[in-house]
Design a protein around this nucleic acid. Structure first.
Lengths: 348, 348
DNA sequence: TTGTAGGCGTTATCAT
DNA sequence: ATGATAACGCCTACAA
């Protein structure tokens, strides 16, 4: 509290040199157990912890990795607009970082206004994990010139950058295929997210793959857009239902599917009897809604973990060819697709 | 990427001194617009961003605030064991920090094993927000000797430390009072969380307050403990029901209430007809379960925001008396208490 | 096992 | 409006 003490004072009071104090705090080698105890005791007594900035300057490693994620819904007053799965990614990143003694710096950025923040963060970290839609593609390239960058869940391949993502396309193909094959459904509609979202694009592509595979007509675009939010899903579904009632609504994510469930209920349509619904992501709420939501599980936590692992790898191996990690997704069968036995999983 | 360039190179190429470059990057005063543009252009061209560590060392401010939150469920394999509301707190903290240009460093720590991590983080930040149960009370004191600390949601008052929390006790008193007053219920049981949790303790105390106020017998301890998890709530409720069936189960948090809902369903008891249930926190899932959960809203995001605001205030005013901020909670009436008109809120 | 000393990349003070 | 230069607190060869 009172003017933070320095390594010099600790050294003086313990009767050793600063080099020895440094070695002790780094848990390295080159000192007797007795010295170690004495130094640590003095440090504790003084409430001294080595200065991160000074350490970082001297060793050229801050021991911090940055995570940039999209900052949705900050403009409006709406709470919880941001996709819930981001929190899981953050947890995963934190876990992987602390596993090696690093810490995670987080920053929510919007493509438009986040530039300054993003570059400010870049200066404070050893490397950056950048989630889709948190900064513009050009800025990703710019950031990558300042610091190692791992791109997360953004299918737009940036030349030479490491990438970690989930197999969205296969997941969407598989759920859609399930509806077609197991339930004999031939009239399906896709409820997409923001058109610029790579995730939404990939999932729509997978949806189309399944239709094509079954010889069904392939639409050129999602039947409606729901902004990846529950309210948006509700609205989009209402609009869709006003025109026609498909036998199945395949949603770009779980939040929208839950919104669609509400719209369907308002329209006095039963799920799955009249219309079946599927989601994507497998957020916690899918188990709580009635009927429970058939969806595609995305390994959100692992996405975060792998992203920082790849980043750490890059830090120790600055050259080397770019990594690309695509984690598998799997469909999770619950009630909303019309299946009886819920809970089973099929890997994609 | 290639050996990060320094302020020297930028200065040389722009034909100015490092001091000027520094001023330009700090957006300060003391340079012509022309110089400003030139320097920024060179910096962008080189992909140079000022080194955070060097900045921090020279200015004695890293521009980073730390957030320590409890790391539950890392031991077991269970995903999503950690209370969901922590994510909201993180978002709030991030928002408040970036509002002033700072960044947030997060670290999940367990009281037992997190010591080292906590102190490592302490060295990297200007100040720390410490959530309940993330580090031991003794370690909080120790940390506070190294760096400014704000205690979040831990009712154990630490002498002289700033504190931010929610009014758990009033919230619990109010829901419980609602059941007694509006629904005429006189046979209530409290399903608590981990006994060492300050939140759980406060909420149980509020529950007791309401009973006492109504002249009902006051229990010495919660009827059961559910570890604040859905599975724990389910188990605890089953155990409780095996002995007796209360008219109301007041739960220490929403996850446990949702678990209790499941246990009740298994026991063929209807909610709210046979047994009414209430939760605490107002997580997203409370709106999805059937019946929707009557609960107590806790301003989670705001908790995070206020905590870092208080911390930032402390940084600019190191002396001064300790702050204490207690945010109000409010009960949210939904279906699980037996009320007809859901959605209304009553402030605590 | 321990000490010495140079350097890490900025900021800030004092000049000009 | 701009420069020169001394800190800032630690790490790390290099020595002893």
């Amino acid at each position: 509290m009172a003017d933070r003490s320095t390594i010099y004072e600790v050294a003086r009071r313990s009767g050793v040199s600063t080099a020895t104090v440094s070695r002790v705090m780094a848990d390295g080698k080159g000192f007797s157990p007795a010295t170690r105890e004495r130094v640590r005791a003095i440090a504790a007594e003084l409430g001294w912890v080595p200065s991160g900035p000074a350490r970082g300057l001297a060793s050229r490693r801050s021991g911090i990795v940055g995570l940039l994620f999209p900052d949705l819904g900050r403009s409006g007053e709406a709470e919880e607009e941001s996709p819930l799965y981001i929190d899981q990614v953050i947890r995963g990143a934190e876990r992987a970082a602390t596993a090696v003694g690093d810490a995670v710096l987080i920053a929510a950025t919007q493509c438009a206004s986040g530039r300054e923040l993003a570059f400010s963060v870049a200066g404070k970290v050893d490397g950056l994990v950048v989630m889709a839609r948190s900064v513009s593609d050009e800025d990703i390239d710019a950031l990558a010139r300042s610091v190692p960058v791992v791109v997360l869940a953004n299918n737009r391949v940036r030349s030479g950058l490491d990438f970690v993502g989930a197999d969205n396309r296969s997941g969407a193909r598989d759920v859609t295929g399930h509806l077609i094959t197991e339930h004999g459904i031939r009239d399906l509609a896709f409820l997409g997210g923001p058109s610029e979202s790579p995730d939404s694009q990939d999932r729509f592509a997978g949806f189309c793959d399944a239709l094509a595979l079954a010889g069904l007509p392939v639409p050129g675009a999602p039947a409606a857009d729901g902004a990846f939010t529950e309210a948006g899903g509700d609205q989009a579904a209402r609009a869709m239902l006003a025109e026609r009632v498909p036998r199945a609504i395949v949603c770009g994510n779980d939040e929208m599917a839950i919104g669609a469930l509400g719209a369907l209920r308002s329209a006095r349509l039963r799920v799955p009897a009249d219309v079946v619904v599927t989601g994507f992501d497998d957020i916690a709420a899918t188990r709580h809604v009635r009927p429970a939501l058939t969806t595609v599980h995305q390994p959100m936590r692992e996405l975060g973990e792998r992203a920082v692992q790849v980043l750490l790898g890059r830090l120790s191996e600055p050259a080397g060819p770019p990594f690309t990690v695509v984690l598998p997704t799997e469909v999770v069968i619950r009630g909303s697709c019309g299946c009886r036995a819920p809970g089973s999983r099929r890997q994609a």
